[in-house]
Amino acid sequence: MSLTTRPQPEAIPRDSAVDRSALGRFVDRMARWPWWLLIIAFFGALIAWNAMTSELYSAIFNRLLLGIGVTIFTTLVAYSLAIAVGLIAGLGRVSQNPVIYNIATLYVQVIRGVPILVQLLVIAFVIVPIVMDGVNLLGNALAPIWGADNLLVRAKPQDVPFLTRSIIALAIAYGGFQAETFRAGIQSISKGQMEAARSLGMSYWQAMRYVILPQAIRRVLPPLGNDFIAMLKDSSLVSVLGVRDITQEARLYAAASFRFLETYTSLAFLYLAMTIVLSLGVKWLEQRLNSEGRAQG
């Protein structure tokens, strides 16, 4: 067996080693680029270019944009309601009162165990009609005072638009998740904060309002921001109730034109464009809170 003469590492000239480390540094720098964002931006530009130059794509976009108002309105209103519901339920989840605790926990467990699409159907087609029946009963009970043909007797489920039902359903569904976010935030504040506030004579609610919640909410802002993004995406579910958001417009357009590829690709990119912007916003918020957190401990 003879010795093979392989090129040895020392054989490489010095200047080439310098070149390689420069290359290495270049590769390192490239590796840190947000390539995913560039890829999305590239395809986004491609689609935008199509939307402006191709007649088909501009027709699709014009159609989709008819629904953008409904999508944004649904998301904003349902999210605001969900925050309110979630905060109340979250406070219930940390309550010492067993009745309040159990009601809040029942709500959270039921909501988190049923798919949002199913909740949407149940609320739109079961709960709302039942509630309207109740309203009619109440109207009949009040007949001696208000007259037999009062407003409550005449109320019908059809009086509640599907947009309203969708918003209620999304708010109740997301409220269950946000309740847990708020609960986690409240419980992450050290016990000493509540004790210090109580020892100064504050009531439980005063301590919550002035000491615990301001710190807890600051801490849960990033997850709440992510929930907002998720809500924007899940607002597409309202299309199953025929509410004309961008998804519903896309379905109608595709069904009529058979342009499934172009329509649904455009729809996907429209959502992606909105969620990317929002997630960059959440990232910025997170960084700001972190730097403030360092300043304030």
Binding site: Q193, A197, V211, Q215, Q296
Partner: peptide
């Protein structure tokens, strides 16, 4: 309890200042 607490100041080992 709240009436008594307002008359009784307490200082804790961990200070428990409100950081916000």
């Amino acid at each position: 309890i709240n009436a008594v607490r307002a008359e009784v100041g307490m200082v804790f080992q961990q200070f428990n200042l409100f950081p916000h």
